[in-house]
């Protein structure tokens, strides 16, 4: 692919990437602790959870939907998996059960939206409360802690010096990028978000594919739950609160439109990295936690304003 094409088709992502690089440059100048191998690996490890949740969110947003329940699903899948893990069940099986819980919650969202004809906002708002309550009921409100080293290795080990959460994140991104760009599931996701009626009239089973999209979102939340549980050596029923907002922010900074039909996982990954680098840098610079919130909010708004400006110029 030549440069002209790259700019034509990925202008939005390049813009976010430029913002990310600019931020890195500024942080390199501002603090000697930023541009070190160990700090950059720390950032990559820290962003992995939000970035993985944002994968499912991106696909949902591409279909012009929204999923508010990702944080609660994460908690629910996490505590179920953790409880199973403590019953001496083989690790892969326990993980499989956790992922199945996430997938099930996601598919339930999808069915409520397609068969129940609920707006995505409402269906997932309900699931947000149900899954959270489920997690609290399942554990009586207590965290489930203490796992085998084999399971914890998912967060603590490295692969070629790269932290395992980062490796898992990259695998999820590669797989879902492939899904979005090389399979008809991806084509249908973009088509549904761009124009659901026209997609239906092109002979596509919109209901089935939309349900699967929400299922995928539940699944990625559960994958994030595996990493979070291994990282903290504990699964908390109150984990993942407000994660939906971080995931939406990463997606939107990455160039997806809440109107649907647009968005890429590359953009979302850059968006998640941008937020992670910003948080890391603000800690390194010892900025107060109150000011950090103001700055992060500003970045989200500016990113979207720039995006809208670019789009207005294109037209």
């Amino acid at each position: 692919m030549n440069w002209k094409n790259l700019i034509l088709h990925h202008g939005r992502q390049l813009g976010t990437l430029a913002g990310l690089l600019l931020l890195c440059l500024a942080l390199t100048i501002a603090t000697p602790y930023f541009l070190t191998v160990s700090n950059l690996l720390t950032v990559l490890e820290q962003v992995s959870i939000n970035a993985i949740v944002a994968v499912g969110m991106t696909v949902v947003i591409i279909t012009a939907g929204i999923d508010l329940s990702v944080g609660s699903i994460l908690a629910f899948a996490g505590v179920v998996m953790a409880t199973v893990l403590q019953r001496e069940v083989p690790v892969p099986l326990a993980i499989g059960i956790g992922l199945a819980v996430g997938l099930g919650c996601g598919l339930t969202n999808g069915l409520l939206i397609t068969l129940g004809r609920l707006p995505p906002f409402i269906a997932t708002l309900g699931m947000m409360s149900i899954a959270r309550g489920g997690a609290l009921l399942f554990t009586n409100g207590r965290p489930v802690s203490g796992f085998s080293d084999g399971f914890r290795a998912l967060a603590t080990s490295q692969f070629l010096f790269i932290p395992m959460p980062t490796v898992i994140m990259l695998v999820v991104y590669l797989a879902c990028h492939f899904l979005l760009t090389r399979t008809r599931f991806g084509l249908y996701a973009y088509a549904m978000g761009g124009n659901e009626q026209a997609t239906h009239l092109s002979g596509i089973n919109v209901r089935r594919h939309k349900t699967l999209v929400y299922g995928l979102c539940g699944l990625t939340s559960a994958i994030a739950a595996v990493i979070l549980t291994a990282r903290l050596n504990s699964a908390q029923p109150i984990a993942g609160m407000m994660y939906e907002l971080d995931a939406i922010a990463a997606t939107v900074i990455g160039g997806a439109s809440l109107m649907g039909g647009q968005g890429t996982l590359i953009g979302t990954l850059i968006g998640a990295l941008l937020m992670g680098v910003l948080r890391n840098g603000l800690n390194l610079l010892e900025v107060s936690s109150f000011l950090q919130q103001v700055i992060i909010g500003t970045v989200i708004i500016v990113a979207v304003l720039v995006d809208m400006g670019l789009k207005a110029q294109k037209k």
Binding site: G19, L22, V302, A303, V306
Partner: peptide
Amino acid sequence: GAALAAILGSLLTAGCNR
């Protein structure tokens, strides 16, 4: 320009802070 100003401004504030 606003985006750049926001990022640089925030870092400047941060720099003063520490």
